[in-house]
Design a protein around this nucleic acid. Structure first.
Length: 240
DNA sequence: GCGACAG
DNA sequence: ATCTTGTCGC
């Protein structure tokens, strides 16, 4: 599946697109209902092969067991520029989500939502494009500041825009004594609800089960794609 | 002007 | 993101 033909190809176009979409983010909404299906999405790259592989994993929020797993392969359509990650990752992520038979009640992204220099990280961006509810769970604080949260699981502290003092997300401890994760609102969900969801999806590991599953899946799929057409493989169905 | 900088 | 050995701990 190709990249949308109106997809920004320059930084100036990308910045203009962020300006346009940021006004459409809805930063509030309820948490997870019983038996809700939560999707995890993640991406793996190989710049040399010009390959990007996205994975979408649908998980039952009650059992935390996957009910569906799909992947999508694409070409790299945008360079990595901090603050413009969505333009690099989302085209293939959208393909993966489209391949899902089920519809997620929430999508957990590997990165930020409102915790973004222009308040439109990839989680919020994905939410506005699809209308799906989204949250962002990142592994590093990006450009924001925070105080160390308490050591116990569930402890959190505000993630702050050091310029404005605004709380753009939360540093959340999902495991006792382990580095916190950084949660922010994506679309159509509140911050407290985003934190509760993240905690519920990460009972045993630092990262939510959704991102753990999506991460391992897209890595495997990328390795398969690279091993892909083997020597002697014409790519055609062999005739007798 | 020079770094830092989600993945 | 990705490149990478061994090591400490449950």
């Amino acid at each position: 599946m190709p990249v949308p033909d109106d997809w920004p190809s320059t930084e100036a176009e990308a910045l203009a697109e962020q300006r346009r979409l940021r006004a459409l983010v809805e930063p509030s909404g309820p948490g997870l209902a019983d038996g809700a299906l939560v999707a995890g999405v993640d991406v793996a790259y190989d710049d040399d092969a010009d390959l990007v592989v996205a994975a979408a994993v649908l998980i039952d929020s009650a059992t935390r067991e996957p009910v569906e797993e799909v992947t999508a392969v694409g070409r790299i359509s945008f360079p990595y520029v901090p603050g413009l990650l969505a333009f690099r990752e989302l085209p293939t992520v959208l393909d993966a989500l489209a391949a899902l038979r089920g519809t997620p009640d929430l999508v957990v992204c590997d990165g930020y939502g409102l915790a973004h220099p222009r308040r439109l990280g990839l989680a919020s961006h994905l939410g506005v494009l699809t209308g799906l509810r989204t949250v962002g769970v990142a592994k590093t604080p990006f450009v924001f500041g925070y105080e160390q949260p308490g050591a116990e699981r569930g402890a959190w502290s505000p993630l702050l825009d050091t310029g404005t003092g605004e709380e753009v997300g939360r540093a959340l401890r999902t495991r006792r004594g382990v580095k916190p994760v950084f949660v922010s609102v994506g679309h159509r969900i509140g911050l407290a609800e985003s934190v509760a969801v993240t905690l519920a999806l990460a009972p045993d590991y630092r990262l939510p089960e959704t991102t753990r599953r999506a991460d391992s899946l897209c890595r495997r799929a990328l390795a398969d794609a690279l091993a892909g057409p083997r020597r002697g493989d014409s790519g055609l169905v062999p005739r007798v």
